[in-house]
Design a protein around this nucleic acid. Structure first.
Lengths: 122, 122
DNA sequence: ATTTAAGTTTACATAAAAGCAACTATAAAG
DNA sequence: CTTTATAGTTGCTTTTATGTAAACTTAAAT
């Protein structure tokens, strides 16, 4: 990760000027320039202010490049927590669809099991 | 938020010593002591190392107090996303229990509906 | 009382940051 | 082409923060 580059890319993508971001996080524009050039570290307090300005989480800002380089995801191998997190990353419609599918798969399986056990009884 | 306090609480909850965390993030134990005392700022690079050691996101570390101050939760009013996030905050056993209950409630409802519609047919 | 380990504080040399002003780059306007 | 304006960068001095060894304080164990 390169926080300086990430911040610069995000700022530009959001159409903000250096001086606007500088004002928001409370530093001189020259200081902010140094931040994007990697000549001055971003403090954690500033990072938090950036999360609000950019409307992103700190982790999204720190891992911005990694997030946006599309890599294949193999969800099956991951832990439940990671699966939940991955599902959450889907947009609302896809997530809803996934949940409906899971519901239906589970429901179907249970009906099958039930009838396999009990049809003979009728 | 008070990052220094958050880190201290998290460290203690995970049963780690200052010198262990210090070693992990690459600072002298005296420097780490200052971090927890608020006498020395945590750098973003260090925060990222802490996310790995603590197995938490940067945002979870920064907002730790807010997360852990016990406030009553009324999950029913919240959006699905928030519900998911809340469920994720549960520990593994509780989460598993919740999911099992939800499964069973849904399954039960479907069986009820099915038999209400079809028992007359037999 | 002694030992041991965790954590804190001090002191001071070293390093980094602040912020202003001067500079460059770019682009639009006359 | 020259002027004007704006965004961003760099240089420089003062101020502030940092690292670390060593001393110090707790506190538990025996």
């Amino acid at each position: 990760m390169n926080l300086a580059d990430n911040i610069k890319v995000i700022r530009e993508k959001q159409g903000l000027l250096q001086k606007e971001v500088a004002l928001h996080i409370g530093v001189d524009k020259s200081t902010y320039s140094k931040i994007e050039k990697g000549l001055r570290e971003v403090t954690v307090a500033e990072l938090q202010k950036l999360t609000k300005l950019f409307n992103l989480t700190a982790d999204q800002i720190m891992n911005y490049n990694e997030n946006s380089i599309p890599t294949e995801v193999v969800i099956e191998d991951k832990s439940t927590i990671e699966q939940m997190q991955l599902i959450q990353q889907l947009d609302e419609e896809d997530k809803s669809t996934v949940f409906k599918i899971i519901d239906k798969m589970l429901t179907t399986k249970k009906f099958k099991d039930f009838f396999n056990k009990n049809v003979a009884m009728l």
